[in-house]
Computed example of a mutant assay.
Amino acid sequence: MSQLSRAAMKWSRLMETAQPNRRLPSTLFISQKLFSTEASGSSLGSADDQFLRTPGSGSVYGRVNNITKYTTKSDIINFLEGCNLNPDNVKVEYTRTYLPKSMMIAFPSSSAYDAAMKAINRKGRLLNMIRADKAQWDVTAPYDGKAILLHGIPRNALIDDVERFLSGCQYDSSSIQMFVRPTDQGPIRMGLIRFPSQALAMHAYITKNQGFCLNNQITLQVLH
């Protein structure tokens, strides 16, 4: 066999050997692409499943309308036991003359609100609660048992007179507000004073209720 023939045969064997390797890159690319697509799809599916499994969060608000002047925050919390409420989740709404008219409730989640509705239905609908929004919650002043309302302040009384009436009590003197409100008994002058704590407000109520400012007997009311 001539040298040229041997070279041709050698070249042919080399070409046959190299043929599978020439397809290897494209096969590898396809496999990698499929693997990438499958992984992406699997990740997306997991994210969707996780999203569906995640419970709703964020505050949901309700308003209880049928309260009395003696209804307390504790009454509402105890009635809605199991809804994860604490006193900070409840605000009392007052009329212009500071009669309690309703209670605003901030539930920690929609599931807590649903649980409250079920509790109300289960206990005979003793509470009348409707859905409210955050704006209604925000405009309701939080007194939290740290504010005292004075009824019957004399028309000619000054802030100094009110401070003398509160002598011996620890309060925020800069918080004193005096105003007139119309009532069934005619216009009454009132005063609103804030205290550093519930205990100090209660001390003022116990020691000063039915006391006198100038010649008028003053009735105290703790605002919750």
Rank of each mutant, 00 (worst) to 15 (best):
F165I: 09
L28Y: 06
I77Q: 04
A157C: 10
P100C: 08
L44E: 05
R122F: 13
D138G: 04
D144N: 07
A7E: 13
E38Y: 06
Q210N: 12
P196T: 00
I176C: 00
M15N: 04
A119S: 11
T219W: 08
V139C: 12
Y70E: 14
C83E: 02
K91N: 05
P20V: 02
Q185A: 14
Q198N: 04
D160L: 13
F29T: 02
M178L: 11
L127Y: 12
A132K: 03
D114V: 08
C213V: 11
A199R: 09
A47I: 13
G191M: 01
M15R: 08
P142R: 05
D172Q: 04
A204F: 10
T68S: 09
T27V: 07
F29I: 03
R189L: 04
G186D: 07
L214M: 14
R23C: 07
P20L: 02
M9A: 08
K33Y: 09
A204H: 05
T72A: 09
Y205V: 07
D172H: 06
I193V: 13
G58F: 06
D184T: 15
S43C: 04
S5K: 07
A157G: 07
R122L: 14
M178N: 00
Q210M: 14
R23W: 09
A116V: 07
S43H: 04
T68M: 06
C83M: 02
S59V: 11
L150V: 08
L24C: 05
V64P: 11
V92F: 15
N216C: 10
S31H: 03
L150M: 13
G168P: 14
R63E: 09
W137E: 03
I206T: 14
D48H: 12
R53L: 13
L52P: 04
I77P: 06
S110M: 05
T183R: 10
D133C: 15
A7T: 12
F107W: 05
N65D: 08
Q3C: 05
L223W: 14
R13W: 13
S31C: 03
S167R: 15
M9G: 01
L214K: 10
T68C: 06
L126Q: 06
R181T: 09
R63Q: 06
F212E: 03
P20N: 00
L24G: 01
Q32P: 00
F35Q: 04
G168T: 08
S167V: 13
R122N: 10
S26L: 12
N156R: 11
F195R: 00
A141G: 01
K118A: 09
D172N: 03
I105F: 08
R125V: 01
S26P: 03
M129R: 02
I77K: 04
M103E: 00
I120P: 08
G41H: 01
S43R: 06
L166Q: 01
Y143P: 05
W11H: 06
S43V: 07
M202L: 15
E16M: 12
R53S: 13
F35P: 00
S175R: 01
Q221Y: 12
A147S: 08
A8Y: 14
Y98E: 05
N121S: 15
T17M: 10
F79R: 00
H224P: 04
S57F: 15
M1A: 12
T27W: 12
V180Q: 02
I218D: 03
T183W: 15
V180E: 06
C83Y: 03
G56I: 10
L149P: 12
P20Y: 07
L223E: 05
R194L: 08
F179H: 02
N121D: 15
S2T: 11
K118Q: 10
L220G: 01
